[in-house]
Simulated assay, not measured.
Amino acid sequence: MAVALHPSIDGGVKPGTGSFAGGTLSCLCTTRTVRLKIKGDVAHNHACGCTKCWKPAGAVFSVVAVTGTDNIEVAENGDKLAVVDPSALILRHACKECGVHMYGPVEKDHAFKGLSFVHPERFAEAGSAAPGFAAFVSSVIESGVSPSKMDGIRARFKELGLEPYDCLNPVLMDVLATFTAKKMGTFRE
């Protein structure tokens, strides 16, 4: 029996089309559904084990990606959105009724400023960029997963073609370190 991680990847990672032009993200509500229009494809799609990201019922990991905040339009029922934690770096706007995190802009002075985190499995349309790695894998221990299950979880990610990291992938870690070096005045080309 394969380790269950998230419903959108448990049966295998579905490849993106490479030409996804955007779509509509919806919350779980059946009445007054919150809908966002997203322009263009998402980037850095990944499984995330942090304790802050929204996960569907029964999922151990979230699946989350980024897009430019200016690519997001709250199209319907934005009055149902509230920021989960105003002090957090990612200002996760969640539906007050069903709890789905619809988008999370980064507004503070940070390498990710201008980006918003979204959950691509909430797209009505198929074809957005596929998950490419798993981040903060060991953090699922903080949410109650036994450390004895971690080898199986990491092995399952590798079976799915998603390299597991206990932070972000190397490219994103380089982006963060570059941002810090520039702020400190130690950056070298």
Results as ranks from 00 to 15, higher is better:
8 S>T: 13
9 I>P: 04
40 G>D: 10
72 I>T: 06
43 A>P: 00
115 L>A: 13
72 I>C: 07
71 N>D: 15
132 G>I: 09
17 T>C: 12
130 A>W: 08
68 G>I: 12
26 S>I: 13
80 K>F: 11
52 K>N: 14
67 T>N: 00
63 V>A: 01
18 G>I: 02
122 R>F: 02
16 G>D: 01
143 S>V: 06
140 V>F: 04
86 P>T: 07
82 A>T: 07
82 A>K: 12
99 G>K: 01
108 K>N: 14
37 K>L: 04
61 F>T: 08
102 M>V: 03
107 E>R: 03
110 H>E: 11
55 K>I: 06
131 P>D: 06
97 E>R: 11
29 C>T: 01
84 V>H: 00
60 V>Q: 07
92 R>L: 11
131 P>M: 06
76 E>P: 04
98 C>D: 05
134 A>V: 08
20 F>E: 02
36 L>K: 10
102 M>W: 03
96 K>Y: 01
63 V>H: 04
16 G>S: 08
70 D>G: 09
139 S>E: 05
134 A>L: 07
75 A>R: 03
55 K>N: 01
8 S>L: 01
103 Y>T: 00
11 G>L: 12
131 P>S: 02
46 H>P: 07
59 A>V: 06
133 F>D: 05
139 S>P: 10
58 G>P: 00
13 V>L: 07
47 A>L: 07
51 T>C: 00
36 L>M: 02
38 I>D: 07
50 C>F: 01
141 I>A: 10
103 Y>F: 13
136 F>H: 03
127 G>C: 11
87 S>D: 14
129 A>K: 10
21 A>C: 13
51 T>F: 04
129 A>S: 14
14 K>A: 13
101 H>G: 09
38 I>G: 06
68 G>H: 06
22 G>E: 04
18 G>M: 07
54 W>Y: 00
19 S>F: 13
106 V>E: 05
14 K>E: 01
44 H>F: 14
46 H>V: 01
87 S>Y: 07
127 G>Y: 09
29 C>E: 09
